[in-house]
Design a protein around this nucleic acid. Sequence first.
DNA 1: CAACAAAGAAACGCTTGCGTAACGATCGGC
DNA 2: GCCGATCGTTACGCAAGCGTTTCTTTGTTG
Lengths: 114, 114
Amino acid sequence: MPVELTPSQALGLWHAVSLEQVRVDSRDLTLRQMAILLEIYLVPPPHTVRGLAAKLGVTKPVITRALDTMGALGLVDRVRDERDRRNVVIKRTVEGALYLEKFGDLIINQGRKL
Amino acid sequence: MPVELTPSQALGLWHAVSLEQVRVDSRDLTLRQMAILLEIYLVPPPHTVRGLAAKLGVTKPVITRALDTMGALGLVDRVRDERDRRNVVIKRTVEGALYLEKFGDLIINQGRKL
DNA sequence: CAACAAAGAAACGCTTGCGTAACGATCGGC
DNA sequence: GCCGATCGTTACGCAAGCGTTTCTTTGTTG
């Protein structure tokens, strides 16, 4: 189910959403953090630090730090994997789901306004 | 010409674009910087520090710093307004236009892949 | 069970962004 | 011409992110 956008619509959508998000939410996630958050919530688990690092093409500490930050914000949670205790499994949270749900609504609404 | 998106499409699009942008471009603009950049390129000039600050709902130093950063990247330029020399007019650059053009293509292509 | 490998976190020094407050330059009204 | 208002920048101390490297814990393999 492809979404066909003109260049003007594509940038206009990004513009409107970025603008509104900046105005509404003081939590200023970086693009990397946003990518990580969406990866966690949109791709089936399990998610690990190593896996996310590979997927985004960044180093592991980048993921660790992003999880620190977003964990403090309550957007994600970390649980040690009991089957291989070297691993940490990243868990979704209610607050994180809510955050993305609102963000999705923002995109939809700004898209309609185009 | 509204764009109708389902929640899944909206977040999926944002996910794909964020991911690809993180992987492709080391310039990691913050959401604020991106919002400023898009405002400059999508809204008719003139743009001033004060105007952008009001539009985004942030303080002036935030704009000044973002312009410093993006100016160093060649994405925007600053010119003193000769009619009221207190003002600074923010100018677009070829490189900035190119940057956004590529970014728009990224959005369009990821949208098609949904 | 010893040795190596792997996963994630922590340490390090550095850079960049933040909010608040102060500043110099410029304008406008009296 | 002066004085208050306006515009953008700078200064300050602080928080957060970065890349690289090192460390700790846990698994795996010979």
